[in-house]
Design a protein around this nucleic acid. Structure first.
Length: 269
DNA sequence: TCCTTATGTACAA
DNA sequence: TGTACCTAAGGAC
């Protein structure tokens, strides 16, 4: 259940457990069997993320392209690997560790040119050093689409998902329904800078926390959040609960088939 | 045991 | 805009 921070963390974790050593590659589920056989015994040489896309590099120009979609999950464990369940699309195993991939939208063997085509259609990723926030702002500032929809558009900015979208708009007091063209470059720069910090922390902690220290549960005298998502947030999945800052009710609505959450008081039009 | 839900995307109409 | 796809957990019954 991934936004960009999850994928960048996975790239680090795959490399830490499997980098520089031959991997036993299998597809117990059977949907990746032929490619797994081609890669079996090869060395994982690099791992890289762009937005929500993960690339595992083998040999010179072979890549496993993984996209988790909404349901995909990756589980690491210590060797010896237990018998895989029948939903394991991809398993890597060596003498010390194994990792199972389940339920991805994409798991495909690709070459350099196909990988490049994916990079080319993705917008700048706040977690990548090569990212150019100005390129994203050029598109945002010309669009009549809402900023809430633009932040989810991977061609414009990659890696942001439904949680970071809701939270970063709250943190900057921006109404999610404002048109992109009405955002100033100052506002965009602030959003971008904030996303870089929030998502880096997300990679470190492997979860999304967005609540500033002064609004944290301890500081406000309220209990920590109990939610399977885990992190401390202002608005995501807090519909009808009181806003941590103004006490008003958090609202929710459908926007492009996703749940949007915001505080109408703190995020004025 | 069934139903709903979820941090996503692609494609058809 | 609607629908299909991939999986697992939690809640309702």
């Amino acid at each position: 259940m991934p936004e960009g921070h999850t994928i960048h963390r996975l790239a680090e974790d795959y490399l830490a457990s499997f980098g520089g050593r031959p991997a036993h590659v299998t597809s117990p589920q059977g949907k990746f069997t032929d490619a797994a056989a081609l890669l079996d015994g090869a060395e994982l040489t690099t791992a890289e993320a762009h937005g929500k896309h993960l690339f595992l590099g083998f040999r010179a120009a072979d890549w496993i392209h993984i996209h988790l979609g909404l349901f995909g999950k990756v589980d690491f464990g210590d060797a010896p690997a237990p018998p895989p369940t029948d939903t394991v699309r991809l398993r890597l195993a060596n003498n010390t560790a194994f990792v199972d991939l389940r339920g991805p939208t994409t798991c495909a063997l690709i070459m350099d040119t196909e990988k490049q085509a994916i990079h080319d259609r993705l917008g700048p990723d706040p977690l990548r050093p090569d990212a150019d926030p100005a390129a994203a702002y050029r598109r945002v500032s010309r669009s009549r689409t809402t900023i809430a929809a633009l932040l989810m558009d991977q061609k414009i900015i990659s890696g942001v998902g439904n949680v970071y979208r809701a939270e970063v708009l709250f943190r900057h007091g921006i109404d999610p329904y404002r048109a992109g063209k009405d955002l100033t470059s100052t506002e965009w720069d602030a959003i971008w800078t904030d996303l870089v910090e929030l998502m880096r922390e997300g990679v470190r902690n492997n979860r999304i926390d967005t609540v500033r220290p002064e609004h944290a549960p301890e500081a406000m005298g309220r209990p920590p959040r109990v939610d399977d998502h885990g992190g401390e947030v202002y608005v995501y999945r807090r519909a009808n609960l009181p806003c941590h800052i103004c006490g008003g009710e958090i609202r929710t609505a459908d926007l492009a088939a996703r749940n949007l959450f915001w505080c109408p008081t703190c995020q004025k039009p």
